[in-house]
């Protein structure tokens, strides 16, 4: 589906179903150098199980027009405008990596628009190593290679996304390479420069899920602990055998955790 936000085209994958704003809405926010397709299986499943799904391409990514937004806060404010354009009053927001920080910020800044947040591969601070940050600016192929190696926990998984016969490492690398030149340094600088994590976490009142992959080298589990502690009642699910790219490496485990969390009774 295409939406118009700030006079620019925004693309959202709706999970293979037409979008019905009357249904409970789940918004998926990809991380640095990604697009909607990182959520392929999870978003398609939920769309076929009673949810209105918006798996977004952030500005400048995938099929969405414009330039990448330079800060986590700016992306959070943009998400709320997307909700408006889609006529969605409130949504559940699922984010991965820098997208998890975006989900956190939306919940803190716009509590009236958010029912729950699920944070996959979150970290605060989301510090990027000096070598990688430098490579994002000066040697993009090398930077993508580093990210790709750090993002995967094993040479094979069953099942993996999008299905049998796909080499998850190769698909992830190619997806990053598909993003326009110049997107990568903006995305990584936004992670590295984000300062508001603890303040935002302190403001979060909605049910919150952390999904932590046990072999994550990009955002190791311990780097999420300050956020977990700062959000009262946050739920934590750990995923065995997976690296940072958990939606591809462990699609069933990620989906099951999301489904259980998103459909559990609302606390009163």
């Amino acid at each position: 589906m295409e939406l118009d936000v700030r006079n620019a085209k925004v693309y959202a994958y709706t999970g293979g179903k037409s979008f019905d704003p009357a249904l409970p809405c789940v918004v998926f926010v990809h991380g640095a150098e990604g697009d909607h397709s990182v959520w392929g299986l999870q978003s398609r499943y939920l769309a076929h199980h009673g949810r209105a799904v918006l798996a977004l391409d952030l500005p400048g990514h995938g099929r969405s027009a414009g330039q990448p937004l330079a800060s986590i806060e700016a992306i959070a404010d943009w998400i709320v405008e997307v909700l408006g354009a889609a006529h969605v009053p409130r949504a559940q927001i699922v984010g991965h990596s820098s997208g998890a920080l975006v989900a956190l910020e939306v919940a803190a800044r716009h509590p009236g628009r958010v029912d729950r947040i699920a944070l996959l591969g979150a970290a605060f601070p989301m510090r990027v190593s000096t070598e990688l940050l430098e490579a994002t600016r000066t040697d993009e192929p090398r930077a993508l290679q580093m990210i790709n190696i750090w993002s995967h926990g094993a040479y094979a998984h069953y099942p993996s996304s999008p299905g049998p016969g796909f080499w998850v490492h190769g698909a992830n690398l190619r997806l990053m390479e598909r993003q326009k030149r110049g997107v990568l340094p903006v995305d990584f600088a936004a992670c590295n420069d984000y300062r508001g994590g603890l303040a935002a976490a302190a403001k979060v009142r909605c049910p919150t899920l952390f999904l932590i992959a046990r072999r994550d080298l990009m955002t190791p589990g311990r780097t999420a602990q300050d956020l977990v502690k700062a959000i009262a009642g946050a739920r934590v699910v750990e995923i065995d055998g997976s690296g940072h790219a958990m939606m591809a490496e462990k699609p069933d485990e990620v989906l099951d955790a999301l489904r259980d969390f998103l459909s559990s009774a609302m606390p009163t």
Binding site: G16, L41, H48, P159, G163, P251, D252
Partner: peptide, 15 residues
């Protein structure tokens, strides 16, 4: 419906 990945029948895929 390709909402989950996995094997169904070995004409389509097999471990």
């Amino acid at each position: 419906n390709m909402e989950r990945a996995g094997h169904v029948y070995s004409r389509i895929s097999n471990p």
